[in-house]
Amino acid sequence: MPKFFVNYRTVDSVHSAAAIADRLARHFGPENVFRDRDSLALGALYPKKIRRALERCDKVLAVIGPTWLDVEDAFGRRRLDNPKDWVRTELQMAFERDIPVVPVLLDNTPLPSFDQLPAVIAQLSNCAYWQVRQKSFESDLRGLIAGISAHEDQAGSEVEVAQYVQHNTASDNGRVIATQGGNHVFTFNNGGRDSR
């Protein structure tokens, strides 16, 4: 059974991350899903436990909401630019260990572009992503789980999984059109900004 690590920023997506982790735990088992608030005992050494969980996981789900990219610290500096920021550190560790990272974009949040990210996690901009929308939360999560399961279980039927596949199509002018389950999701340009 695959093991998952849920990466998220508290002020951006704590409730969505908790709901996503809960659905994953129901399907794959709670012992196979790590989310810090659910998985760390009181008094646990945070850095040690985080590193151990990342080393054991098969996939990292990076939950990205509308403020994920630009959240600032108490001094007005972008948290993502701080090498000690845990969201950044967890993603950096995953990329250094060649652990697949699946960006889970909430509602109309675009995938951050390469030049919007610190160099150590810039490859996040090239990761195949999945969108979870409030209006279709349950079906989008079922699609996410089906997509993950399809890659883990190659014996799965292509017909059963096809309805959940998300396709990204680039046009000549650099715009990317994303469709999920045959429905238009959103369009963004190569600067990463929504251009619907």
Rank of each mutant, 00 (worst) to 15 (best):
residue 2 P to K: 08
residue 2 P to H: 10
residue 4 F to I: 01
residue 6 V to S: 07
residue 7 N to H: 06
residue 8 Y to S: 01
residue 8 Y to D: 03
residue 8 Y to E: 03
residue 10 T to P: 05
residue 12 D to H: 00
residue 13 S to P: 04
residue 14 V to C: 10
residue 14 V to H: 14
residue 17 A to L: 10
residue 18 A to L: 14
residue 18 A to W: 07
residue 20 I to A: 06
residue 20 I to Y: 03
residue 21 A to W: 06
residue 21 A to L: 07
residue 23 R to M: 13
residue 25 A to T: 15
residue 26 R to A: 09
residue 26 R to I: 09
residue 26 R to G: 06
residue 27 H to R: 12
residue 28 F to I: 07
residue 31 E to W: 11
residue 31 E to H: 13
residue 32 N to S: 04
residue 33 V to H: 02
residue 34 F to E: 00
residue 38 D to M: 12
residue 39 S to C: 10
residue 40 L to F: 07
residue 41 A to F: 11
residue 43 G to C: 07
residue 46 Y to M: 10
residue 49 K to V: 15
residue 50 I to L: 15
residue 50 I to T: 06
residue 52 R to W: 04
residue 55 E to T: 14
residue 55 E to Y: 03
residue 59 K to M: 00
residue 60 V to G: 00
residue 61 L to K: 12
residue 61 L to V: 05
residue 62 A to D: 04
residue 65 G to Y: 03
residue 66 P to G: 12
residue 67 T to Y: 15
residue 69 L to Y: 09
residue 70 D to T: 13
residue 73 D to Y: 02
residue 74 A to H: 10
residue 76 G to I: 07
residue 76 G to Y: 04
residue 76 G to T: 06
residue 77 R to W: 01
residue 78 R to F: 06
residue 80 L to T: 03
residue 84 K to F: 10
residue 85 D to Q: 00
residue 85 D to V: 00
residue 85 D to T: 00
residue 85 D to A: 09
residue 89 T to P: 02
residue 89 T to A: 08
residue 90 E to D: 08
residue 91 L to I: 02
residue 92 Q to F: 04
residue 93 M to H: 02
residue 94 A to Q: 10
residue 96 E to W: 05
residue 99 I to Q: 05
residue 101 V to L: 01
residue 101 V to E: 05
residue 102 V to E: 02
residue 107 D to E: 13
residue 108 N to Q: 14
residue 109 T to K: 01
residue 110 P to F: 01
residue 116 Q to F: 06
residue 123 Q to G: 09
residue 123 Q to T: 09
residue 124 L to G: 04
residue 125 S to P: 13
residue 127 C to L: 03
residue 130 W to Q: 12
residue 133 R to Y: 03
residue 133 R to S: 08
residue 134 Q to G: 12
residue 134 Q to I: 01
residue 136 S to L: 07
residue 137 F to C: 10
residue 138 E to F: 02
residue 138 E to T: 14
residue 147 G to L: 02
residue 148 I to S: 06
residue 151 H to L: 01
residue 154 Q to L: 14
residue 155 A to L: 10
residue 156 G to E: 08
residue 158 E to K: 15
residue 158 E to F: 15
residue 159 V to G: 11
residue 159 V to C: 04
residue 160 E to A: 14
residue 160 E to G: 12
residue 160 E to N: 11
residue 161 V to I: 07
residue 162 A to G: 06
residue 163 Q to T: 13
residue 164 Y to D: 03
residue 164 Y to R: 03
residue 166 Q to W: 11
residue 166 Q to K: 15
residue 167 H to T: 08
residue 169 T to Y: 04
residue 169 T to R: 13
residue 169 T to L: 11
residue 175 R to N: 13
residue 176 V to Q: 09
residue 178 A to V: 11
residue 182 G to R: 09
residue 183 N to C: 09
residue 184 H to W: 14
residue 185 V to C: 04
residue 186 F to I: 14
residue 186 F to T: 14
residue 187 T to I: 10
residue 187 T to R: 03
residue 192 G to D: 03
residue 193 R to N: 13
residue 195 S to F: 01
